[in-house]
Design a binder for these strands. Structure first.
Ligand SMILES: [Mn+2]
Ligand SMILES: [Mn+2]
Ligand SMILES: [Zn+2]
Ligand SMILES: [Zn+2]
Lengths: 134, 134
DNA sequence: TACTTTATCGCAACTTAGTTGCGTTTGTCA
DNA sequence: TGACAAACGCAACTAAGTTGCGATAAAGTA
């Protein structure tokens, strides 16, 4: 994310341009996989409560979204990325992005008609062995 | 689960027929939604480490499977149930089972061809508002 | 620039879910 | 009825995340 993009993003959401915030967003900008809070605390010199509070702010503003790998640590990615899922190697823990040919819109439409449940989001991740590990 | 089914299940997996084990399996038998460890500790008079250890045994044996709702508590269901997913109401926390018209086999096959990643399982849950809450 | 307001931050204490070491009990099979 | 491993209880511990509160620092205004 370029400095000018950052400024307009923060302005748009009425967020102050602080050091902690800039550093967290910089990590997300350069990240090639979803990032967890622990990683941020280890890579930014800032108190952990600031990390967790900032993640909540960014999540509430819709700037990032929460991803669940099921290992007890929440992960986050920019929500502006194209909707996708992940291939998680259970051996080496590598993570690849993947998009479905036909995400789940049709299935969700069908479910909503059958059940009158209003679906707002889904969490889908795949687990297995990457090319190297299999 | 009937008593004779239970005995043969335990025998098949070389598991001792203990009180704790019977009670945990009884809870799963009557459950209408995935069960978490806390629920078990609140409903069975047994030490929590026994609960967690037993869940690990049942998981390793493939008798139950782990489900992730993303709220920090692992949930478990009998693995013998027909493969399905869940509709989780973000308002009242109700949980409904749901099966896809065409689960994800085609998508997984396509992903495996494109990426040479070997998919072994997926975790898919839907979030939104149930009929009552929407 | 100085002043005011309020979001943000650091710190420490706390909570919740889950884990581990170890000594004791119990189910199973001979 | 032993022998033996699996299972259990207990207490202490870990890891991820939360909270209260006083201090600091952006951002707007005079
Ligand atoms: Mn991604
Ligand atoms: Mn279910
Ligand atoms: Zn791998
Ligand atoms: Zn509801």
């Amino acid at each position: 994310m370029q400095p000018n993009e950052l400024v307009s993003l923060l302005k748009k959401h009425n967020l102050k341009n602080t050091k902690v915030r800039r550093e967290i967003l910089a990590v997300f900008s350069h990240a090639e996989r979803p990032i967890d809070a622990i990683y941020l605390t280890e890579n930014i010199k800032v108190n952990k409560s600031s990390i967790y509070r900032e993640l909540k702010v960014l999540l509430d503003k819709g700037i990032i979204l929460e991803i669940e790998f099921g290992d007890g640590k929440k992960r986050y990615e920019f929500s502006s990325l194209k909707h996708h899922h992940h291939l998680i190697c259970t051996n080496c823990k590598s993570v690849e992005d993947v998009t479905l040919n036909q995400d789940l819109w049709l299935e969700e439409k069908s479910i909503e008609e059958k059940t009158s449940f209003k679906i707002e989001r889904h969490n889908l991740e795949f687990f297995g062995l990457c090319a190297n590990c299999k």
